[in-house]
Design a protein around this nucleic acid. Structure first.
Lengths: 158, 158
DNA sequence: CTGTATCCTTAAAGATACTG
DNA sequence: CAGTATCTTTAAGGATACAG
């Protein structure tokens, strides 16, 4: 798919994968830590760790017999996505009574992530738009031109 | 699960669901728009839209015979998570050549989402911590006390 | 401890045809 | 147009036992 979101989901869009990554952020490193923390089957965990290493989201260190799993830079770059999802769950799926909160290293809860524009002004969801990027292929361009991708942008609406 | 992330994933942690939501942000409203845009089976789409409406992420308007699907406030609140994931895919899965970029309503590409603390300072991934929240149950508290959730916080490490 | 190898059961997804 | 109803196929996940 010619789509970054689909590609992202291909790497981490699985039920267990993001939970594994969260545990890695929490400091889990050993196979058994993930396994006991999440309670998933061993073969499933094995498969997920394999995929994550193959996708360069996590890496294996330690000895082959007792590996240590940790996040790569690519994996750590998931922090905003992870925090955003958790905060959304805090607010809407946990009725603002989250079991666990994300904090800075001093233990102060983090404010909600905001989408801001180049001037630092917050962009509300209705203000979001999409446009062909540098990697757009012919099909993508065609789609946007065909019907402005569903919703006309202000420029087209004028 | 006593975990906001798992609850969030329960609502939107599916392969198709986030793509449907993205199309909704793009302005798609009709069953056939989603279907043609994503190319998923009709029964699958039907199921996803059903779940999304049940979870109050999307809502149905228009006539029963020709419904219009749109995001609720809860759904629009997914914008940060969606943008964060897409940007991650842009950078790492599309080699910084994204087919589609997220912009503000003027068409200016958005800067990358950042995790900031209460003072507005950026929090790097290593600085992330987690702590029991107001909705923590006994089991959650026990977990944190048992082993500081894998990694000792600076306070515990001292 | 860290997996791999099977087996088994269930769920998910697509294709297709049909209905209001 | 917007689904529903079947049917079929495949994949995913858990359980268990075993191995290095």
């Amino acid at each position: 798919m010619n789509c970054s979101l689909a590609r992202a989901l291909n790497d981490v869009g699985d039920w267990w994968t993001l939970l594994i990554i969260r545990d890695a952020f929490l400091g889990a490193q050993r196979f058994s830590e993930f396994q006991r923390s999440l309670g998933l089957a061993r073969n499933t965990l094995s498969d997920r760790l394999e995929r994550l290493c193959a996708a360069d989201v996590m890496m294996r260190a330690g000895t082959p017999a007792r590996p240590l799993y940790s996040l790569t830079e690519k994996g750590r770059a998931l922090a905003p996505a992870l925090v955003a999802l958790q905060q959304w769950g805090d607010q809407f799926a946990s009725a603002n009574l989250p079991p666990v909160v994300v904090t800075d290293r001093c233990g102060r809860p983090l404010p909600r992530l905001k989408v801001v524009d180049q001037d630092g002004a917050e962009v509300d969801p209705e203000g979001l738009r999409f446009a062909p990027g540098p990697g757009a292929d012919a099909r993508t361009h065609a789609r946007f031109q065909a019907h402005a991708r569903f919703r006309p942008t202000p420029a087209f609406r004028s």
